[in-house]
């Protein structure tokens, strides 16, 4: 493997547990994924599947008593899952940038946008106040904000929703992190603005060779922005592969059902294809394949044995149908 092909982030068999009064709940198990420099990995799946949890675990932001109970996380060749809070604090912002759904949670209403950018830059990079200011202006320019020299003096409420999210992107990129975790970055934005923010993220990721983990439930966004896609179900990865393959030739019955259930803009059908039932709760995950109660292909083996994520070519899926055996 050449140096350039080394993953920026490498998550290996990650397991996250939440101990509780009635025993421990496993929120993530066996999650393995990696992202290279300049690559966007889209993460999709039903609400509660574990998408945000994966991002939080990588950033060391799991809410206690939740904790990593297995596996390893490597960032640029360094193992980070065992670091203490202080060390992780250093990594967040400097090496891992974060973009969340609601831009207002990431911005302080009391400080100007320039002050916030400057502060973040100086916290992580050894630069003077003046240099930090110039860099802040440049960052705003990079994210497409007109007249950035004026805009740095303004407060978040003076920006529109789409512009605020651009500022948050600028903030996440302020210290040139190696990895950006964007969790539903466009969900709170106007539909016509979403595409702009996504294409901006994509452009910056390519230019700056940042690895991006893009969590979203919007398949259109994934189709436009992601290079590879990871599909999660009940705390596990069930499919992983190049974007065209996962969206247009999915291998796992869940992904197939998911894609078929999206209404099309071309032809109109009387009834949408639907996956009956719902994702199991974490404390009631069936043995065998977690999708088996909803799966039309499920055979006896699916009810007893859990299929592992198995690679075939560039893509991987966790389904007995694709594992060479019989379901």
């Amino acid at each position: 493997m050449g140096e350039a092909d080394k993953p920026v982030i490498d998550v290996r068999e990650l397991r996250v547990e939440f101990p509780g009064r009635r025993g421990s709940v496993t929120a993530l198990s066996d999650v393995s994924l990696s992202i290279k420099a300049g690559e966007i990995l889209g993460v999709v799946g039903e609400s509660g599947a574990g998408k945000s949890m994966t991002g939080l675990a990588i950033q060391g932001l799991l809410e206690r008593p939740g904790h990593i109970s297995g596996g390893e996380i490597w960032l640029a060749g360094r193992r980070i899952d065992q670091l203490n809070d202080q060390a992780m604090e250093q990594i967040r912002g400097r090496e891992i940038g974060a973009i969340f759904q609601d831009p207002l949670t990431s911005l302080n209403p009391l400080f100007t946008v320039g002050a916030q950018l400057g502060e973040t830059i100086r916290q992580h990079l050894p630069v003077s106040k003046r240099e930090a200011k110039l860099r802040a202006i440049q960052l705003l320019r990079d994210v497409g904000i007109p007249s950035p020299e004026e805009r740095v003096k303004q407060y978040p409420h003076q920006f529109s929703g789409g512009m605020r999210q651009r500022v948050v992107i600028a903030l996440a990129l302020a210290a040139s992190p190696k990895l950006v975790i964007a969790d539903e970055p466009t969900t709170a934005l106007d539909v016509s603005i979403q595409a702009q923010v996504i294409s901006l993220l994509r452009k910056l990721c390519k230019e700056k060779q940042t690895a991006v983990m893009l969590v979203t439930h919007d398949m259109g966004v994934i189709a436009e922005a992601a290079d590879r896609v990871a599909v999660m179900y009940a705390g596990r990865l069930i499919e992983l592969g190049p974007v065209e393959q996962v969206l247009h030739a999915p291998r796992h019955p869940y992904t197939q059902g998911l894609m078929a259930s999206i209404p099309s803009l071309d032809g109109r059908v009387e009834k949408l294809s639907q996956i009956d039932g719902s994702m199991p709760r974490l404390d009631a995950i069936p043995i065998g394949c977690a999708f088996s109660p909803r799966c039309s292909h499920a055979g006896p083996r699916c009810l007893k044995e859990r299929p592992e994520l198995t690679f075939a070519g560039e893509g991987a899926s966790a389904c007995w149908l694709n594992a060479g055996g019989t379901a």
């Binding site: 529109s160 016509s192 595409a195 702009q196 259109g220 999206i262 099309s264």
Partner: peptide, 26 residues
């Protein structure tokens, strides 16, 4: 037309979209 063009579509994604500017007025 703008609405139909700018909405990311799964079946016909536009991966070369330029991050154009434009805001919804108040």
């Amino acid at each position: 037309q703008l609405l139909l063009q700018t909405i990311p579509n799964v079946r016909t994604p536009n991966r070369d979209r330029e991050p154009a500017n434009g805001e919804v007025p108040s």
